[in-house]
């Protein structure tokens, strides 16, 4: 991007050998991922692939079992609360549900980060808020309450709030999920324009293939907690890996079945591994 002096290095995100466990269960296995400045990285995978867990790590909401995550050059595991707060002002997050405050107007929701993190005067905050509403095609909706908006409008308002601080790095969790194709496409266009105009690095977590192929500079395909592929749209499309082809063609894959383990689960005895001697 054309010059932000706070930026240094080639990457916005560097994930190195990231492992995560929920209890005894390993969710992410040695995940390595680098997101270049100014690129749109789409993280895709089926349900249970680990993409939401990976996103939570990138947002600093989870701590790795091992490995590390660097965001905008900062090692998340070594930040003081103050440094973490500073880093938050340089990133934006558009959550899947919107996560707008239901008791605040759309305008107040969008202005909230500016009021919390800056000492800008209210006139400037008002103009910045309405600018972002223009950018997401919600001009004139600032006084409405979240409950008065459609699903697509909520998504766009959430995006407006995520970009109100002009972040260097933007995260979008399922930005087009549940939207009709026209509205979904308009959100894709908006994400592309943000990259081109503001030079933002953007990470999109989605299982929407149309959206992925439209916006991605590179795609990270997760499968069962591992990075199956990390490459350009063209390379992913051309991949001969059966699991990637299944994902792209929306084919289900028969999971391997261990009859003994299956029976134990049905009998509610999964926590007690049994040896052959007890199976009589």
């Amino acid at each position: 991007m054309a010059g932000r002096s706070s930026q240094s290095g080639e990457f916005s995100i560097e994930v190195t050998d990231l492992d995560t466990h929920y209890g005894d269960r390993q969710i992410l296995h040695r995940v390595n991922l680098q997101v270049r400045k100014g690129e749109i990285m789409v993280i895709m995978g089926g349900s249970g692939s680990g993409k939401t867990t990976l996103l939570n790590h990138l947002l600093g909401l989870l701590s790795p079992s091992s490995g590390n995550v660097r965001i905008l050059g900062e090692d998340l595991g070594r930040l003081t609360p103050m440094q973490r707060q500073m880093l938050r002002t340089r990133t934006g997050v558009a959550f899947q549900s919107g996560a707008l405050f239901s008791s605040m107007s759309i305008g107040d929701n969008i202005a909230l980060p500016l009021r919390e993190h800056t000492d800008l005067d209210e006139t400037t905050i008002g103009i910045m808020t309405r600018l972002k509403l223009e950018v997401v095609s919600l001009a004139g909706f600032e006084n409405l309450m979240p409950a008065e908006l459609s699903g697509g409008m909520i998504k766009r308002a959430a995006l407006a709030r995520a970009i109100v601080m002009d972040p260097e790095l933007l995260f979008c969790d399922e930005p087009s999920a549940g939207l009709d194709p026209v509205v979904a496409s308009s959100i894709d266009d908006l994400i592309l324009r943000l990259r081109d105009a503001m030079g933002m690095s953007i990470v999109v977590v989605t299982h929407d293939l149309d959206s992925t192929f439209k916006i991605a500079d590179r795609i990270c395909v997760l499968d069962r907690g591992k990075v199956l592929a990390l490459d350009t749209v063209e390379a992913i499309r051309a991949s001969t890996d059966l699991r990637i082809q299944n994902l792209l063609n929306r084919r289900t894959e028969d999971a391997e079945l261990d009859p003994d383990a299956y029976l134990r689960r049905l009998l509610g005895d999964a926590s007690k591994p049994q040896d052959g001697a007890r199976r009589t």
């Binding site: 991007m1 054309a2 010059g3 400037t124 910045m128 600018l131 972002k132 002009d166």
Partner: peptide, 9 residues
């Protein structure tokens, strides 16, 4: 070389 929306405001 760079302008954000606070500058535009």
């Amino acid at each position: 070389t760079y302008v954000d929306s606070s500058g535009i405001a």
